[in-house]
């Protein structure tokens, strides 16, 4: 390979690395500003309520659909597997652990990444390219406090009940399939669930909700604020926000489980 081509590649990689670290620095400062503006919540109470409705109440259907279908599917598949070992009565325990520790919060995180994250990215991106965010700054309003902080607090608060709802719906659908598909008595199913659940199982599951709330809100909002280049730029930033936040939700899901299970 000619020396010039290597140098040009070197320069390109260096520029990309510089861009990456610069973006990370910007994201860090953006996140700090979002958290630092939480004391202004009283002033933006109405914005918080709007966002709580959007990410909380309005997200219930999609969370229910995903958790019910996964709960039912999990009961069928795991039940079939346990049947081979003559341990079908353990279905309640295995599905409960999977749903409460992992699938309930993760599905909720992925669904909200798609729903709440895409809305944030598109809405803030459109505001960015139409100079509405510049207008806020120009007239003396902090756009992070007005637009991002209420979203962050709403997600931090609403993701917890959504996780509980996701767990509940997933378990109920699993119990339904256990009774009607595997012919397991509901008493046996629930007996394998309740007495064996310990605090650690709930800590793993519910600790993920605030972690996902921070990831989804900040990543999607940051991408919205960084939108450039007209309507296609809004599309690009929205997609980037969803892809990055979904990936980070999956990674965080693994690490939260690992850290809590190893240390509790």
């Amino acid at each position: 390979m000619p020396v010039n081509a290597i140098r040009s590649l070197e320069k390109k990689v260096a520029l990309q690395l510089k861009d990456f670290f610069f973006t990370m620095q910007e994201f860090f400062l953006f996140s700090v500003r979002a958290f630092a503006s939480i004391p202004k919540l009283k002033r933006y109470w109405r914005d918080f309520l709007d966002q709580a409705t959007i990410c909380g109440t309005d997200s219930i259907p999609i969370v229910l659909v995903s958790s019910i279908s996964i709960g039912a599917l999990l009961a069928i598949e795991v039940g079939n597997l346990l049947e081979d070992f003559g341990a079908k009565t353990m279905l309640g325990r295995s599905t409960a652990l999977s749903i409460i520790r992992e699938l309930g919060p993760m599905l909720m995180g992925l669904m909200l990444s798609a729903r709440f994250g895409s809305r944030n990215g598109a809405e803030l991106g459109a505001m960015q390219i139409s100079e509405q965010i510049d207008a806020l700054r120009a007239f003396g309003t902090d756009p992070v406090a007005k637009l991002v902080m209420p979203r962050l607090v709403a997600a931090l608060i609403m993701f917890l009940p959504l996780t509980a709802l996701s767990d509940f719906a997933g378990l109920q659908s699993a119990a339904y399939m256990a009774e009607h598909y595997h012919r397991i008595d509901p008493g046996i199913f629930w007996n394998a669930v309740y007495p064996r659940l310990v605090a650690k199982d709930f800590v793993v599951g519910f600790l993920k909700a605030p972690v996902f709330a921070v990831i989804i809100t900040l990543v999607s909002s940051f991408n919205g604020f960084s939108a450039r280049g007209g309507t296609s730029g809004v599309g690009r930033s929205t997609i980037k926000g969803i892809v990055v936040s979904s990936g980070l939700v999956l990674i965080a899901n693994f690490y939260v489980s690992k850290i809590v299970l190893e240390n509790m």
């Binding site: 139409s130 100079e131 509405q132 510049d134 207008a135 700054r137 120009a138 007239f139 003396g140």
Partner: peptide
Amino acid sequence: RRKMGMVFQGNA
């Protein structure tokens, strides 16, 4: 900034 008003190109 409150000493100045701004009219953006796309109105914002």
